[in-house]
């Protein structure tokens, strides 16, 4: 089972804490989106491995963009 991390809101990726193929744990801070002068942290939905990473720091994203995919280990 793989879970996608969707952008909860449109904004700019100001911090990215994951790399491709890295192991991540549920509730870790995956990345931070800045919108309306506020930083919104986005968290990892499940334990697993990052199998796809579609953004880099500084990217502008739209709501519901698939930011990354986590394959459950």
């Amino acid at each position: 089972m793989a879970e996608e991390i969707l952008a909860p809101l449109a904004g700019k990726i100001v911090k990215l804490n994951m790399t491709l193929d890295a192991k991540v744990e549920e509730d870790e801070e995956a990345l931070v989106i800045e919108a309306m002068k506020m930083e919104t942290p986005v968290f990892v939905p499940c334990d697993g491995v990052v199998t796809a990473l579609n953004v880099k720091e500084g990217d502008e994203v739209e709501e519901d963009d698939v930011l990354a995919v986590i394959a459950e280990a």
């Binding site: 809101l9 509730d27 919108a35 309306m36 506020m38 919104t40 942290p41 968290f43 939905p45």
Partner: peptide
């Protein structure tokens, strides 16, 4: 912490 209400609140 995984509840993102900002956009709904706008």
């Amino acid at each position: 912490k995984k509840n993102y209400l900002l956009m709904y609140a706008m």
